[in-house]
Amino acid sequence: MSLGIVFALLGAASAVFLAGMGSAIGVGVAGQAASGVVTEDPNKFAKVLIMQLLPGTQGIYGLLVGFITLAKIGLLGGSMAALDPMTGLLILGGCLPIGIVGLVSGKYQGMTSAAAIGIVAKREDQFGKAMLFPAMVETYAILALLTSVLVITNVPV
């Protein structure tokens, strides 16, 4: 196995791990807030569940980039490409945006979701507005996802 493949696999792993960690933290934080509200008012379960799910997308983006990377290097098709170290490093670099931004934005989106759950707890009719605040954080995860996908798909293998 070439060093290039090792770098590319490291990239796929970091996209999945880091973005997944961000989502796990975010969903965990928002889940704690959601549990607090449902303890007192079970009728708000559906609304707070949606809020809790919002930070979960970073993990999905990381997984998507991981799959694209694996497909790119031919691991999924069974015939692995022979990558030189430079190409492997380029793929690793392409995976980092979603990995790092996914970790940070997942955590902060979870915190924002927890705050927004507080709005729903007090003013259920403001659910739509409350959901916009954590959704804003999503923007940066999407930008990172686009960058990662563009880099990985355009690296010549």
């Binding site: 934080v29 704690q32 807030a33 549990s35 607090g36 509200v37 303890t39 708000k44 927890a114």
Partner: peptide, 19 residues
Amino acid sequence: MFDIKYTYAVARLRALENH
């Protein structure tokens, strides 16, 4: 300040504050 160990309690209190 966001202290994660109070997330559950504060959200629960937000619901209780309605009463």
